[in-house]
Computed example of a mutant assay.
Amino acid sequence: MKIVQQSHAGTLESGDVLIRIQPIDSPEIEIELESVVGKQFGDAIHRLVHDILNKLNIYGVRVIVEDKGALDCIIRARVQAALIRATGTQLMSVNWSAL
């Protein structure tokens, strides 16, 4: 999947996460993390986001994560929603079994 536009998903409410997706010109994955629980779970959040991007074969992207203490399942859902919006794909065309 290729990132074609900026997108976002989530909120800045307590227990949620705001995910912003931006296309970049290089074939890299850039993840910026700001989290209220970053000292305890920052590495795990970073790995989770990177894992989702790798499984969906997405490169050339900047992901900005503003976490307010969200659970892994919430982070995963917000990243997936933002990616669907950023790629302009339909829900049915995503390989959900890869995740």
Rank of each mutant, 00 (worst) to 15 (best):
K2L: 12
K2V: 10
I3N: 02
I3L: 05
Q6V: 05
Q6L: 08
Q6A: 12
S7W: 02
H8R: 14
H8W: 14
A9S: 15
G10Y: 10
G10E: 11
L12Q: 11
S14I: 15
S14E: 11
G15K: 10
G15Q: 05
G15W: 04
G15I: 04
G15F: 03
D16A: 06
D16S: 07
L18S: 05
L18T: 07
L18V: 08
I19T: 05
I19E: 01
R20I: 09
R20S: 14
Q22T: 15
Q22L: 13
Q22H: 12
P23V: 14
P23C: 14
P23M: 15
D25L: 06
D25E: 15
D25T: 07
S26N: 04
P27M: 09
E28Q: 09
E28H: 01
E28L: 05
E30I: 13
E30W: 10
I31T: 06
I31D: 07
E32F: 00
L33K: 05
E34D: 13
E34V: 07
S35R: 02
S35D: 08
V36I: 15
V36N: 09
V36W: 02
G38V: 02
K39Q: 12
Q40D: 14
Q40Y: 02
F41G: 00
F41H: 11
G42E: 10
G42M: 12
D43L: 14
A44C: 11
I45V: 09
R47W: 04
L48G: 06
L48Y: 00
V49T: 03
H50N: 15
H50A: 15
H50T: 13
D51K: 03
D51T: 13
I52G: 08
I52P: 08
N54I: 03
K55S: 03
L56G: 10
L56T: 03
N57I: 04
N57A: 13
I58W: 08
Y59P: 04
V61H: 02
V61D: 06
R62I: 01
R62Q: 15
V63P: 06
I64Y: 00
V65W: 03
V65L: 01
D67E: 12
D67T: 11
K68A: 06
K68V: 00
A70P: 14
A70R: 08
L71P: 00
L71V: 08
L71C: 06
I74P: 00
R76D: 13
R76L: 09
R76P: 00
R76N: 11
R76I: 02
A77H: 04
R78A: 10
R78V: 08
Q80E: 12
L83T: 07
I84Y: 01
R85W: 07
R85P: 01
A86L: 07
T87Y: 03
T87S: 13
T87P: 12
G88F: 08
Q90R: 12
L91W: 11
S93N: 05
S93R: 00
S93Q: 07
S93Y: 03
S93C: 03
V94Y: 01
N95Q: 11
W96P: 02
A98P: 01
A98F: 07
L99A: 09
